[in-house]
């Protein structure tokens, strides 16, 4: 009897000691994550296995892997949009990195007007994608932009329209997005540049390292993790870029600037084919997941040298 009372008291003590507070604190966050992230993602996976087109309800129902076999084997637009997405991501991220790093190195130096120079370099990052598009649309517009300049300078009749050709549209969109994206790298890399220990440069100079060697073995070496992380983030963002391309080129002309997310948007907003759109979204998700994992592994992100 005494033993039983002792056990009960111990159990009660354990129960009293169980700390509910962390769970209650985390509870609302977990609920919100489930409601606004886990549930929508699960819904996309669910619909990717369905025929679901609001305009053709007679076809709605379980599709199995039908949507996936269609996109893999019968949908040339999936492959062409994926190819353009790859070109877009590689072109944008590599140019933004190179030019952003160059600007970061410049504004890291000490010179008069550095504050103003930094403000000018970083300003485009504060501008939304749609507003960026409006600015560049005015520049590319034959009446208000380059065409007008061409006419004023007497170089032509003002009929210059950079967005009218497939190559022109790609280059024009590339430049507009570079203008917005370069500051992202410049800001991140400048922050990391300021933490490079000066002793390393001094030691390199003692070892007679030239400017290139100091840049290669001290600066770049120090920036490696920042570069890997920022390029990965930017690659994912550029992959998912819809605002600028949608408003600047609409994916044209002739689908030449249609990325995979733009194609998905078309399937949802014009065709109302949500089942197939969900399958395309799952494909994009898997591609990004595989790319991210592979990229971090190949670059040995976070590993000590």
């Amino acid at each position: 009897m005494t033993h039983a009372l002792t056990v009960d008291a111990a159990t009660m003590q354990r129960r009293r000691k169980f700390n509910y507070a962390p769970y209650l604190l985390l509870g609302p966050t977990v609920l919100l994550l489930v409601a606004f992230i886990a549930y929508p993602i699960a819904t996309v996976f669910y619909y990717s296995l369905q025929h679901y087109n609001v305009t053709e309800p007679w076809y709605n129902g379980f599709a199995g892997l039908g949507n996936f076999t269609q996109l893999l084997f019968r949908d040339s637009k999936f492959w062409s949009s994926l190819q353009f997405t790859a070109e877009w991501v590689v072109g944008e991220v590599s140019l933004q990195l190179i030019l952003g790093l160059a600007l970061a190195l410049v504004v890291n130096e000490t010179f008069r007007g550095r504050g103003l120079a930094r403000a000018i370099v970083f300003a485009p990052w504060a501008i939304s994608g749609v507003l960026t598009t409006e600015i560049w649309l005015l520049i590319y517009n034959p009446v208000t932009g380059l065409g007008k300049l061409e006419r004023l300078l007497g170089l032509g009749n003002g009929n210059l329209a950079p967005l009218a050709t497939t190559h022109g549209a790609f280059l024009s969109a590339l430049v507009a997005e570079l203008w917005r994206g370069i500051p992202f790298f410049a800001i991140l890399l400048l922050a990391d540049l300021q933490s490079v220990p000066q002793e390393l440069y001094e030691a390199a100079r003692v070892d007679r390292a030239n400017v290139f060697h100091r840049f290669r073995y001290v600066t770049l070496s120090h920036l490696k993790d920042a570069i890997v992380l920022s390029t990965l983030l930017r690659a994912v963002w550029e992959f998912n870029n819809v605002d600028l391309l949608y408003t600047l080129t609409g994916g044209g002309p002739a689908d030449s600037t249609t990325t995979l997310p733009l194609y998905i948007a078309q399937e949802a907003t014009i065709s109302h084919n949500f089942g197939y759109g969900a399958a395309l979204t799952v494909a994009a998700f898997v591609i990004l997941l595989a790319f991210s994992g592979l990229y971090l592994r190949l670059t040995r992100f976070g590993q000590e040298r």
């Binding site: 044209g252 002309p253 002739a254 689908d255 249609t258 014009i270 065709s271 084919n273």
Partner: peptide, 19 residues
């Protein structure tokens, strides 16, 4: 399919005819 035919399928092809 009217919207899909006009805006998704044929609109890019019309631009191909133009270029």
């Amino acid at each position: 399919e009217f919207g899909t035919i006009m805006d998704v399928d044929m609109a890019p092809l019309w631009q191909k005819v133009l270029n």
